[in-house]
Design a protein around this nucleic acid. Structure first.
Length: 585
RNA sequence: GGGGCCGUAGCUCAAUUGGUUAGAGUACCAGACUGUCGAUCUGGGGGUUGCGGGUUCAAGUCCCGUCGGCCUCGCCA
């Protein structure tokens, strides 16, 4: 077999006159009857190979057999291309290889779709033939970029004293949080491992071990419904540090992000990242992951709406709801149809309606203006900072619905009105999350972050009396409206951890059964510690300007969590079930 | 679990109100062609309209079910 001397991206004018052997796939063939041109592709690039009939009849006939995706080795002379035939779109476009010898290493059936970046193929077919999809230069770039990011992570965290430690995939189920993927035990019938939703408890135990600074690029598993940004198995950059407070964890991430942007994107970002409290974020943006590349903040008019004659507003307020809205500047030209579309849009997010006013020179114009007196209209205009030509949009409902619908409406308008600069990267830390949230269906409090998150020290005294007011030492990092990750300072005190379990409605016996190993470990000198985990797939996607993490995962799953390539999940043999002591219902 | 969109040639799509032989681009095959690079020109092959049932004189089109893909709400500590 011919061994390659260069890759398909390597040859330049400086190699003209030399002999070279290239290997790769036939990307395209242009057969002129006499001259035959082949674009040869490998991971490194594309080089044009020329077959001239004057170099031998046999060679030329063999070249005529070539088809798309054949695997070949070609030996020949590197020549400068004749004047006027240089291809400026290829880095190798000034040269070509004049073939003297051709080995067809493997043939290919006609591929189900063309292996080209511009090919427009459904995700279904791309996943079914992922190995062909991944042959496309764009997809190779995504995977290589991801690899480079991982290299950078290891290099940076190593320089900061972090140690990479692997933690088990076969572990025990912890019912708090997402649904677990279960693995039956052959040794102990009726018992199951769970695949980790994150290595949370192990990394805390590593802190008790004195590892001091830990990280891991690790697969996590959650058996929940999928989205473009959610896969059942995904990768986290997981970190934990001892003897730290919030600022220490944030500083590491900020330093890391600055390095990533500089080395991978050639961009400077300003440090430190701004901080926004959860409460403020919800007030202004209705979301704990706001896109700060544009303003269009939410304004409160509940107090004014209470004074109106508008029944829908008044009833919503009487039921304990709120009236809040957005000022879509310059949008009074929106047609009735456009406003109906917006109404339908907020309807998808739970709002029962969308009240609107067009701002005119005199007052407000709308079918419901008659329910608002002159003074009230003026007050609303002032509150909304409205000027003639603006469109005011309001939702009246329970707070959760108001938040959801207005935050989505804000994003919708931001895109529609071109308020978003795609070149901009707006990082922010969201801080001071509530520790707990009352779950109506469970009839008890649940952790917002996870049960190992420390409450703020000053809130600990009223943990039991006013649990909903207790704030957590938790923080999320948000970039352009996408939550990249989150973390917290953990509880390292056994007694406090036990109090939290009790608040979550877990009796001591259950807590001991589920988390006894952690409580026990805390008895033997657990240092104060905290950490963070970033969704690596999301980070890679964001950095590449993509909104679908399937573009940066080699073999992702479909929305039904199946793999179109391997057809997993699949049935297993009766014998396998028997060994596991399982029977299908 | 709820709502929505889609499934037609290898691929990406079209097909009027339900109406004659289901088309286009590309890919593929054959021929021609010595400077192309999304080659060009000429010709050709290619369809159980996802699957099953129903309505109708007549179904790619309408209805029911089912399978698959996507989006979305819930869910995702």
């Amino acid at each position: 077999m011919l061994k390659r001397t260069h890759t398909c991206g390597a040859l330049r004018k400086s190699e003209v006159g030399k002999e070279a052997t290239l290997t790769g796939w036939v990307a395209s063939r242009r057969d002129h009857g006499g001259l035959v041109f082949i674009d040869l592709r490998d991971r490194y690039g594309i080089t044009q190979v020329v077959f001239n009939p004057e170099y031998g009849k046999e060679l030329h006939e063999k070249a005529g057999e070539l088809r798309a995706e054949f695997v070949v080795a070609v030996k020949g002379e590197v020549r400068e291309r004749p004047p006027g035939t240089v291809n400026p779109r290829l880095p190798t476009g000034e040269i070509e290889v004049y073939a003297k010898e051709l080995n067809i290493l493997n043939r290919s059936e006609i591929p189900p779709f063309e292996v080209e970046d511009r090919a427009n193929v459904s995700l279904e077919h791309r996943l079914r033939y992922r190995y062909l999809d991944l042959r496309r230069p764009t997809m190779q770039h995504h995977l290589i970029f991801r690899h480079k990011l991982c290299q950078l992570i290891r290099q940076y965290l190593d320089s900061q004293g972090f140690v990479e430690v692997e933690t088990p995939f076969l572990t025990r189920s912890t019912p708090e949080g997402a649904r677990d993927y279960l693995v039956p035990s052959r040794m102990s019938h009726g018992a199951f491992y769970a695949l980790p939703q994150s290595p949370q408890l192990f990394k805390q135990l590593l802190m008790v071990s004195g590892m001091d600074r830990y990280f891991q690029i690790v697969r996590c598993f959650r058996d929940e419904d999928l989205r473009a940004t959610r896969q059942p198995e995904f990768t986290q950059l997981d970190m934990e540090m001892s003897f730290v407070e919030e600022e220490d964890v944030m500083a590491i991430i900020e330093g890391f992000m600055a390095e990533v942007f500089e080395k991978l994107l050639g961009k400077k970002i300003s440090l430190p990242f701004p901080k926004l409290s959860y409460q403020r974020a919800m007030e202004l943006y209705g979301s704990d992951a706001p896109d700060l590349r544009f303003g269009l903040t939410i304004k409160e008019i509940t107090d004014l709406a209470r004074e109106s004659e508008f029944r829908i507003f008044r009833e919503a307020i009487e039921r304990g709801g709120f009236v809040r809205g957005l000022n879509a500047q310059g949008c009074s030209t929106f047609s009735r149809k456009e406003i109906d579309e917006l109404t339908g849009f907020v309807g998808q997010h739970g709002a029962k309606g969308l009240a609107w006013f067009k701002v005119e020179d005199g007052g407000l114009s709308s079918p419901i203006t008659k329910f608002f007196g002159q003074g009230l209209q003026a007050a609303i205009k002032e509150r909304m900072e409205a000027r003639p030509g603006d469109l005011l949009l309001f939702v009246a409902d329970r707070e959760k619905i108001v938040h959801q619908s207005l935050s989505q409406l804000r994003l919708n308008l931001g895109r529609r009105l071109n308020l978003i600069n795609n070149e901009e990267y707006c990082f922010t830390w969201i801080t001071d999350f509530p520790l707990l949230e009352f779950d109506e269906t469970l009839g008890r409090y649940v952790s917002i972050h996870h049960p190992f998150t420390s409450p703020k020290l000053e809130d600990i005294p009223h943990l039991e009396e006013r649990p909903h007011e207790v704030r957590a030492r938790a923080y999320d990092i948000v970039l352009n409206g996408v939550e990249l990750g989150g973390g917290s300072i953990r509880i390292h005190d056994q007694a406090l951890q036990q109090r939290i379990f009790r608040l979550l409605g877990m009796d001591d016996e259950t807590a001991k059964k589920r988390f006894g190993f952690l409580l026990e470990a805390f008895k033997y000198g657990a240092p104060p510690h905290g950490g963070i985990a970033l969704g690596l797939d999301r980070v890679v996607a964001m950095l590449l300007g993509l909104d679908d993490i399937r573009e940066v995962i080699a073999f992702p799953k479909t929305q039904k969590a199946s793999c179109l390539l391997t057809e997993a999940p699949a049935e297993v043999d009766e014998q396998q079930l028997k060994e596991l002591g399982l029977k299908l219902l």
